[in-house]
Amino acid sequence: MATVNLTVNGKAVRRDVPDTTLLSEFLREELRLTGTHVGCDTSQCGACVVHVDGKAVKSCTMLAAAAAGGEVTTVEGLANGGLHPMQQAFHDNHGLQCGFCTPGMIMSGVDMVNRYKDSGRELTEAAIRHELEGNICRCTGYHNIVKSIQDAATKM
């Protein structure tokens, strides 16, 4: 068993879990934060993307013990009073159909907007499509997802 101390969405948590516990399992089953979805469980689909120490990662491909001591933000932790601009943009632009991939899309969207802003690069439509390489949506054809991220980028 591993003792995992983490800050999740600003709150300190501590759990004793098997060493093999994935961060995605830790969030969903230990903390009941089921906003983080597990789609493929093979690090391809991106439904499980969360931020660890400020960076987007696939939580199905990280051991909870390896994240210990770090700060994790899940889709539940984005809203601060009102919806986060990225969440609002997905709502306004109908950036989803079934919604399964949406938590990962939103977390990847926030990450890419932050990275492009930090490096002073323009987040073009083509760049967004390229950046979404690791987030798979089987409903929308991506058009409204891309529009949502473009919209949010102007408000973040």
Binding site: G46, V57, K58, T61, S108, D111, M112, E131, E133, G134
Partner: peptide, 9 residues
Amino acid sequence: IGDPAVRHV
């Protein structure tokens, strides 16, 4: 290599 989230790790 991979995608942005993979490259972070």
